Amino acid sequence: MSRSTRATLALTAAGLTFDVVTYDYDPDADRIGMQAAEAIGASPSIVLKTLMAEVDGKPVCVVVPSDREVSMKKLAAAFGGKAANMMKPAMAEKATGFVVGGISPFGQKKAVPTVFEIEAMAHDRVYMNGGQRGLQVRLAPADAVKAAKAITAPVVA
């Protein structure tokens, strides 16, 4: 497994400090973020999952704790929109250049508006996908928001 991905290169280029953590990715897991949390021995509240959605038909990225679900109403509101829905996996892969299970908010093929769940900001360090299956990056949530040029908002149900 390569520890150098478009995501880790983007973090390095931004001058941020982060750790890389690898784990055995389970392609049959029902909930990828929860499986990652268990595999690395971290609380699901600090292992963030990266999801791709659409608000009023435009792509957005949403990052939330792996044990929480996105509220479509709150997601739409975070971007000043009326309606939100999850992006189909094939569209998410095409939009980001990453495969499902390896989608990161950093180094996406084309940057899209990104929101981090505000609850994630309460932690010293969080984990999120580093751009490939079985690879997590660990960093300060404020640094993650900065690197992704994201906003923070309450977006979980």
Rank of each mutant, 00 (worst) to 15 (best):
E69F: 08
T12C: 07
G134F: 04
T8N: 09
A122F: 05
F18Y: 15
T114F: 03
D24V: 15
K73Y: 09
A157N: 11
A7Y: 10
S4W: 10
R125E: 15
A142S: 12
A111H: 13
A153G: 05
V100F: 10
G134L: 00
A76M: 04
F79K: 00
F106V: 00
P65V: 00
R31I: 13
S45N: 12
S4T: 15
R68F: 07
L75A: 07
I46C: 08
K58W: 06
V60Q: 01
P44Y: 08
A148G: 02
M87Q: 08
M1V: 13
G107Y: 03
F18M: 10
A10G: 08
V62P: 03
D124R: 08
G101E: 11
S66A: 12
D19F: 06
Y25H: 15
G97R: 02
D26K: 07
K73F: 10
T12I: 09
A36T: 10
F98V: 01
K146Y: 10
I151F: 04
M86P: 10
A95Q: 15
R68S: 08
V21D: 07
G101H: 07
F106T: 00
R31C: 08
T152K: 00
K82F: 11
K74S: 14
M87H: 09
Y25F: 15
A53C: 05
L135N: 14
A92C: 03
D143G: 05
G80W: 08
R31E: 12
A147M: 00
A92T: 12
A83N: 11
E119K: 09
A147Q: 02
V115C: 07
M52D: 05
G102L: 04
I103A: 02
